[in-house]
Write a protein that binds this DNA or RNA. Structure first.
Lengths: 251, 251
DNA sequence: GATAATTTGTTCGTATGTATC
DNA sequence: TGATACATACGAACAAATTAT
């Protein structure tokens, strides 16, 4: 390090003025975060770099970071670094639930991708949800939903095969459940049942959703019905819990 | 071990009949679980005991247990053992959300306990939810809700202090939010907003809820309003995710 | 796939400043 | 003034996780 790059940042800190160094560091970083100088999701400098910049020990920086993490302004990941917290997306669970609309309302760019499709026999849950006999043939679709190009949820959809045999092909073109339904004559559909719980993801889900360690997933089982009240879709959707918050507002 | 208790259970298994031993063991255990011979939440014998009972190697038992875990009939916890899966409680999120009613409908015995109460200034979220100015004084209650005597959720309630200063005392007598509200003149209240997400619990929550390792919590932020539409309660409730499933049914 | 480098996490120990009795 | 407890700050070493090569 040359002479003119010798840390000048000491001046940001004042020792022995009654405010602990880590508190002062926290305040500086908090300002950077709240002002947007550090964007949401952006990586902060490493602890070593911060320690050098402020001319203090790494422990002192760590105490400041711990406080910021406690206030949920950053998330710290071992081996990776500290990241400015990304706001959770508000996902409205109302009578009509539409992926694209929900994301656009939050100024996020939605996109969907088809992972694959096949024909399967209805299991107990699917049969009950779709009000068909067990072992009825169903079309199964696996899709991924993205927000701003980042994976947000993985869904397994089930449709009565008889009525929606062409769904996969149409979906492959339109990349939207809503649009595909419309193309197949279901102008409107409403949510009739929603079940929500949470668990830890398996390895495949960690990969598919790009989850950080120790991040749980929210699991949503849902049933949608057409205008006549006939179930048209049963779905199980796995959401990255650190990126989503479900909102139920009274009408 | 005396002679007459020597394992007779070998007869449960048949070697070289085209069904792997671990499959047969799995079938036996699955029957015990499904028939209710092993109650929900009950601990299974240790792998050693099972291996002895079936006269097989411990690895063979492990393969059977792994399959049962995959089918979510048991949960295996390192260092503790394998436990018959406890059914998740269906907790209805409707216009009216009542803890006791929800549990009784599922044939569980509800109980609530007051952990403590104090007077605090409203933070940003609480003020917004209760439609009061920030720094308005609020009554804060911390409670635990149990199902069949087992902790299910920890709630932090906020009430406008002016109107509900006596809530803690009344709650301490009645052990029910609904009953306490009624005693204070709020005959009915309805849920106006619900937000659901999930995260990993902190150490205190693990202790309070008796959570197994790697079990996330569901976090529910809610607002309740009285008949006139005035917010009366803002609450943040932390639920053991392995014991609960939220259900939203169309009316 | 294996290895090395980077980064955060944890645990020692030591020293100093501050508040309290 | 002394004794004590507690928070602050620094240093070194190692563990654990991730990333790059």
């Amino acid at each position: 390090m040359t002479h003119d790059t010798v840390p000048v940042a000491h001046r940001e800190l004042e020792r022995g003025n009654g405010v602990a160094l880590w508190r002062q560091i926290q305040a500086v970083l908090e300002h950077d975060l709240r002002s947007g100088y550090v964007a949401a999701g952006e990586k902060l400098p490493t602890e070593r770099q911060l320690a050098q910049r402020f001319g203090v020990n790494r422990h002192t920086v760590r105490q400041a970071l711990a406080e910021l993490a406690r206030k949920e302004l950053i998330v710290v990941e071992q081996g990776r670094g500290a990241f400015a917290r990304r706001d959770k997306l508000d996902y409205a669970l109302a009578r009509r639930v539409r992926f694209s609309e929900n994301l656009l309302r939050q100024s996020r760019i939605p996109s969907e991708r088809l992972l694959g499709s096949d024909k399967v026999q209805a299991g107990r849950r699917a049969a009950e949800a779709l009000q068909v006999l067990p072992a009825t043939m169903l079309l199964r679709l696996r899709t991924v939903g993205n927000a701003d190009g980042r994976p947000l949820c993985c869904t397994t959809h089930y449709f009565p095969y008889g009525r929606f045999a062409g769904f996969a092909a149409v979906y492959g073109q339109l990349h939207s459940v809503t649009a595909a339904f419309r193309a197949l004559g279901v102008a409107d559909y409403v949510r009739t049942s929603t079940r929500i719980t949470s668990r830890m993801p398996d390895a495949a889900e960690v990969r598919a959703l790009g989850l950080a360690r120790q991040t749980p997933v929210l699991v949503v089982e849902s049933v949608n019905a057409d205008g006549a009240g006939t179930p048209v879709e049963y779905g199980v959707c796995v959401w990255a819990a650190d990126r989503i918050q479900f909102v139920i507002d009274a009408a």
